[in-house]
Design a protein around this nucleic acid. Structure first.
Length: 714
DNA sequence: ACTACGAGACTTTTT
DNA sequence: GTCTCGTAGT
C-alpha cells in the first residue's frame, strides 16, 4: 500500500479520496471526517502524481479552516505548501488581484476595507452626497451594495423601479467611484473584481484554468452565488472540482449563502454520483437519532442519515425551568457535577441562539466561581485602538486613503473640528486632490489650518523615518510619534488598550516571521483579511459559552443547549424570512450534533428579554425529537410557579397558561362574548398580566388580558 | 471639543 | 436590561 494515509478510512471516505479525475459532490454529515477526506484527497492526488502542489487550489471560508488544512497536509506529505493555493475565497481573490493589479485596474497597494470601514465610508459618502440618512440608513445601503455585488451586479446592472432604488443605485455607483479614488476594496469587491478580471481577460483565465486541474471546496453549502460563479469560471475543461458540504448544516443563508448551489453544481459539473459520508465518529446513537429525526422535518434535502457504530448512549436530558435564572442555575449545578466526574471544563459547552442570552449564564457561572469563556464580541483587529493604529499605518502606506485620514486626523485630539474638516474636504473636492494632499497644501487658514498642516507633516515625517525600519519598529515608532500610545496611557481605563497596542507590535513581529512579504502593505492586508481568532481554541480550562453558529465545526463531551423556546429558538424574526424556519431547524441540527456523549436541552417558562419579562412556549423543535430519546429531569424547584400548569409528561411538553381554572394554549379555540369565535395564536406575560393574542374569525387579531377577557375554551 | 443624557434598537456572522 | 448613537449643553 503506497498510501499510508488511506489506512483507517471507511469505504465511502476512501471512495471519495480516490475518486478518478472528475467533478464530485461529497455530502459530508456532521462528524463524518470531512476535513480528513478533503486533506487526504489532496495528499492522494499529489502522492499519486495526478496533481502537483501548484496545480491544486483549495478554498475554505475561514482562515482557521485553511490553516488547519495546511497543517494536516504538511503532516501527511513532505512538501512545501507555499506554492499551493490554499485559502479563503477572499484570501485567494486578494492573491489574484495583487498579482494582476494592473489588469484589474487597482493600485499595487490597494487597501482592504472591513465591514466597519465600509460602513464609515458609506456614511461619509451619504453626507457628501447630501443623502438623507434617515431615509437611507447606512446599514441598509451597505447591505444593498454588498448583496448586489454578491449577485455579481454593478450599479448600472441593478434594476431600479422607483425613486428609492434609483437613489440607492446612484449611491452604489458613487461608492464604487469613491473606493476606486481612494484605492480601497471591500470584501465583496475582492470577489467581484477578480471574477470580472477572469471573465474579461481570456488569457489570464485560460492560464489559471489549465494550471488548476484540481479545485477543492470546503463547506460548499455556504457558498454564495458569486462565489459559485467564480468557481465555475476558474474551473476549466480539464478541471475536476471536489466539493464537500452538508446541506443540513447550511446556516448562513442570512448572509447570502445559497444551498441551491449544491443542486446546480450537480448539474453544471455533471456529477456522476454523490458520495455520502454518513458514518459519524463523534456522537452516541441517541444524539444522532434525535438529530436525524429533527432534520427530517425539512423539505428538499439531499437526504442523509447519520449513524454510528457506537452504542445508543444516554438519553438527552430535558430540563424545564421556571425562569432563565433557574435554567442557568441548573446548568451550573450540572456542569459542576460533570467536573466532579472528571470531565474537563473545556469539554463542556453552553450553547444559545443569541448572544443576549449569555448574560444570565455568565452571571450564574461567575457567582459559582466556575471558570468560563465567552466567544464572540470584538476581535483583535476590530478594536478601536487597533483601528486607529491601522489607520495611521494605512495613511503612511497610501495618501489616497481618505477614510484612514479622517479617522485619525483628530485622534488624539489636535483641535481639528468638524468645521475645518468640512473646509478641507471642500478644498480637496474643488481641486480634485485627496485629503492628504489638500492638508499638505494648507488650504485651510487659521489655527486649525496650522494643526492640519502639522498633521500632514507628521505623516510625512513618519514615512521618512520608518522607511528603512523593520515592520514592528515602524509600528512602535508610529505609536509613539502619533501620540496614540500617550493618549491611552493618560486615559483612566486605557491600560488594556495600551496592552493591545503593544500586542499589535508583537503581531507584526509574528507576521514578518511567518511571511515572506514582510511589508507594511502585506501586514495591513493580513489585518483586514484576518480579524483575529473568534472561534474557540482547545485547551483553555473553562466552560465554553457561544452561539450555536459559533459552535459549528466544534465538538464537546457535554453540551448544554439552552433557551429552547418559541421566539428564541426558532427565533421569531425567522418567521418573516423565506425558509427561515428550516434554517432554524438546521441550526438546531448543528447544535445537537455538537455533543459527543451527553446533551442537555433546557428551556424557561419566563425569561428577561429586552428589559421585560417574556413568557414563552417550549420550542416546537422539542416535539420533533422522538420521546424515547428524551428524559425529563425536572427538579422540584421548577414547579414553584403557580401561574403555569404542571408540565405535561415530557417529551410532549406543552407550555400553557392557567387562569381561574381554565387552561389556555396556543392553537386553543375560544369564544369571546363580544368578538365571537377565534383561536389563540400567541401569548405574553404571565400570572396576573398574562395576555394572549386571539385571531378572531370576524374581528381580526387582538391582544386580550386573560384576567379580564371572559373567554370560553371550545 | 468634550460630556451627558435620552432615544431606539436588539439574531445569527466570515471575510 | 444594556449598548450605541446622535444631539444638546457646557
Amino acid at each position: 500500500m503506497p498510501y499510508p494515509f488511506l489506512h483507517g478510512l471507511n469505504p465511502e471516505q476512501r471512495a471519495a479520496v480516490t475518486l478518478p479525475h472528475e467533478s464530485a459532490l461529497i455530502l459530508a454529515g456532521a462528524g463524518s471526517g470531512k476535513t480528513r477526506v478533503l486533506t487526504t484527497r489532496i495528499a492522494y492526488l499529489i502522492q499519486s502524481g495526478q496533481a502537483t502542489p501548484g496545480g491544486v487550489l483549495a478554498v475554505t471560508f475561514t482562515n482557521k479552516a485553511a490553516k488547519e488544512m495546511l497543517t494536516r497536509l504538511s503532516a501527511m506529505l513532505p512538501i512545501n505548501t507555499r506554492g499551493m493555493w490554499v485559502g479563503t475565497f477572499h484570501g485567494l481573490c486578494n492573491r489574484l488581484l495583487r498579482a494582476h493589479h494592473r489588469e484589474a485596474a487597482l493600485p499595487a497597494l490597494f487597501q482592504i476595507l472591513d465591514s466597519a470601514d465600509q460602513l464609515s465610508a458609506i456614511k461619509r459618502l451619504l453626507k457628501s452626497l447630501n443623502v438623507d440618512e434617515e431615509k437611507y440608513a447606512p446599514k441598509q445601503v451597505q447591505h444593498f451594495i454588498n448583496a448586489s455585488k454578491e449577485e455579481g451586479l454593478r450599479a448600472e446592472q441593478v434594476d431600479a423601479y422607483d425613486t428609492y432604488t434609483t437613489t440607492l443605485r446612484e449611491v452604489f455607483a458613487e461608492y464604487d467611484r469613491q473606493c476606486q479614488r481612494e484605492g480601497v476594496v471591500d470584501f465583496a469587491e475582492l470577489l467581484l473584481r477578480s471574477y470580472e478580471l477572469l471573465s474579461r481577460d481570456t488569457n489570464l483565465r485560460e492560464h489559471y484554468q489549465s494550471r488548476f486541474r484540481h479545485i477543492l471546496v470546503d463547506e460548499f453549502q455556504d457558498t454564495n452565488r458569486l462565489q459559485y460563479r467564480w468557481l465555475k469560471l476558474l474551473a476549466g475543461p480539464a478541471t475536476a472540482v471536489f466539493a464537500v458540504g452538508d446541506d443540513d448544516q447550511s446556516i448562513y443563508a442570512f448572509r447570502g449563502a445559497h444551498v441551491g448551489n449544491m443542486h446546480e453544481f450537480e448539474r453544471d459539473f455533471s456529477v456522476q454520483k454523490i458520495i455520502k459520508l454518513e458514518q459519524n465518529y463523534r456522537s452516541h446513537g441517541n444524539i444522532l437519532d434525535a438529530a436525524n429525526a429533527l432534520i427530517h422535518h425539512n423539505a428538499g434535502r439531499l437526504g442523509k442519515n447519520l449513524w454510528t457504530s457506537e452504542g445508543a448512549g444516554e438519553q438527552i436530558r430535558l430540563f424545564e425551568a421556571a425562569t432563565d435564572q433557574e435554567e442557568a442555575a441548573f446548568i451550573v449545578d450540572e456542569a459542576k457535577a460533570l467536573q466532579r466526574e472528571g470531565v474537563s471544563l473545556a469539554d463542556i459547552a453552553i450553547l444559545y441562539r443569541s448572544n443576549a442570552q449569555s448574560r444570565v449564564l455568565e452571571h450564574a457561572l461567575f457567582n459559582a466561581a466556575m471558570p468560563y469563556r465567552v466567544y464572540g464580541g470584538l476581535r483583535f483587529f476590530e478594536r478601536q485602538e487597533i483601528k486607529h493604529a491601522l489607520a495611521y499605518l494605512r495613511l503612511m502606506a497610501s495618501s489616497d486613503d481618505d477614510g484612514a485620514l479622517l479617522r485619525v486626523i483628530n485622534f488624539p485630539a489636535r483641535g481639528i473640528g468638524a468645521r475645518s474638516l468640512e473646509q478641507l474636504q471642500d478644498a480637496a473636492k474643488t481641486r480634485g486632490v485627496n485629503l492628504f494632499e489638500a492638508a499638505c497644501m494648507r488650504v485651510v487658514g487659521g489655527k486649525a489650518g496650522t494643526s492640519i498642516g502639522n498633521f500632514a507633516a507628521l505623516i510625512e515625517m513618519l514615512r521618512g523615518e520608518c522607511a528603512d525600519l523593520p515592520l514592528p519598529e515602524q509600528i512602535e515608532h508610529m505609536l509613539d510619534k502619533s501620540g496614540l500610545l500617550l493618549h491611552y496611557q493618560g486615559e483612566k481605563e486605557g491600560a488594556e488598550r495600551v496592552e493591545n497596542l503593544n500586542e499589535l507590535v508583537n503581531a507584526a513581529a509574528g507576521f514578518i516571521a511567518e511571511n515572506q512579504d514582510a511589508s507594511l502593505a502585506g501586514f495591513l492586508t493580513h489585518a483586514a483579511l484576518e480579524a483575529g481568532e473568534h472561534q474557540a481554541e482547545a485547551g483553555i480550562q473553562a466552560i465554553q459559552l457561544m452561539t450555536v453558529h459559533a459552535a459549528k465545526g466544534l465538538e464537546f463531551h457535554a453540551v448544554f443547549l439552552s433557551g429552547l423556546e418559541e421566539g428564541l429558538f426558532p427565533h421569531e424574526n425567522s418567521r418573516n424570512e423565506r425558509d427561515g424556519l428550516e434554517e432554524e431547524r438546521r441550526l438546531m441540527y448543528v447544535a445537537i450534533t455538537r455533543a459527543r456523549r451527553r446533551l442537555y436541552i433546557s428551556y424557561a417558562q419566563s425569561r428577561m428579554l429586552h428589559g421585560q419579562f417574556r413568557y414563552g412556549l417550549v420550542s416546537r423543535f422539542l416535539g420533533e425529537i422522538p420521546g424515547e430519546l428524551l428524559k425529563a429531569i425536572n427538579t422540584s424547584r421548577s414547579h414553584s410557579h403557580a401561574a403555569w400548569g404542571a408540565p405535561s409528561p415530557a417529551p410532549q411538553v406543552r407550555a400553557s397558561a392557567v387562569t381561574a381554572g381554565a387552561t389556555w394554549r396556543i392553537g386553543q379555540n375560544v369564544v369571546h362574548p363580544k368578538f365571537g369565535a377565534g383561536v389563540i395564536v400567541n401569548c405574553e406575560g404571565g400570572g396576573d398580566d398574562a395576555r394572549v393574542e386571539v385571531k378572531f374569525r370576524d374581528h381580526g387579531a387582538k391582544w386580550l388580558a386573560l384576567e379580564y377577557a371572559r373567554m370560553t375554551a371550545v
